[in-house]
Design a protein around this nucleic acid. Sequence first.
DNA 1: GTCTATAATACGATAGAC
DNA 2: GTCTATCGTATTATAGAC
Lengths: 188, 188
Amino acid sequence: MDARERLITSTQALLWERGYVGTSPKAIQQRAGVGQGSMYHHFSGKSELALAAIHRCADQIRAYTEQRLSAPGTAFARIEAFLLQERQVLQGCQLGRLTADPEIVANPDLHRPVDATFVWLRQRLAEVLDEGVANGEFAVGLDVNDIAATIAGVVQGGYVLAKAAGSDEPYYSAIRGILALLAPPTRQ
Amino acid sequence: MDARERLITSTQALLWERGYVGTSPKAIQQRAGVGQGSMYHHFSGKSELALAAIHRCADQIRAYTEQRLSAPGTAFARIEAFLLQERQVLQGCQLGRLTADPEIVANPDLHRPVDATFVWLRQRLAEVLDEGVANGEFAVGLDVNDIAATIAGVVQGGYVLAKAAGSDEPYYSAIRGILALLAPPTRQ
DNA sequence: GTCTATAATACGATAGAC
DNA sequence: GTCTATCGTATTATAGAC
């Protein structure tokens, strides 16, 4: 892996652990095993590095999520697969974490890909829920956009509860709760 | 208000906006209108200041939440009041925000009150849900601890979605979703 | 209690040699 | 492409006068 690639990977990891404000160029270099001169040759500075790392995270999250949501099976099963997919719960969400960062929110270039990813996620969840309504899996009166936001919210909030507790148990508890509320009548 | 009090209030606001890593003693002093010498007279440093501010936030959140959850009315109505209470959605949760901060998570003194507050919240929500199950408002099979985690999670996750979108709409959408799923059969 | 001075370290970047 | 040197500023205090 070349220096540029190692710098992106290293920035991804540090943004995840410490956020934008908490991540220094020096830490990025050390983790990547790359010198200062090399870093400033490949990237103009911290914000350009962060932009590359955020796009990388967004691409990975979309690909991984799309696999679950477009798999064969009922709408409920696909949403369940999304909610129960392997996650590093105590690390939280790579992109969700950045919404707490004032310098990310204030910088449109950095903010935009975060926004776009959550818009996309809610949209895809709503489409799957729509199929479920058409199937008869879910009640017809359901507002699929609201339920999609609820599902995306439970995941993000589950991370917060888990980090607060220092345990992944509250995350899985929250997921079991939303699955119980969503479960089609035939499963109850 | 004396200097000590202004320093706590100022730290609360900055932790909320910028987190622990992003908040400097100098910024706290300036916002409080208090000099350096005064600050270090009242507090040993940044972490002691943060501890006082976190306890203050936790007390306020508990008091405000308890008002909604112990009000007269059905279990559903009280949970609805909790979810729809006035919030500064785009600012997020004062305590939830801190779970993203590596130095808070790493410092047991700072982490503990955050943990305790979310444990308390889930416990109180579960108690209210229990009353609702006893009432016949909610189905008997419901695991109230799981649903409590789901409800607390939707609030925290709703903040994340709202900050990502730069709008409070996704928050309210997620809340409408969980309320629709929770609504007693007589309301559907 | 509050002030100003001082200090060691870290931050985020630039310059120029190789 | 990568290295080392340098720079101006910010951080997080400590010291001692008032």
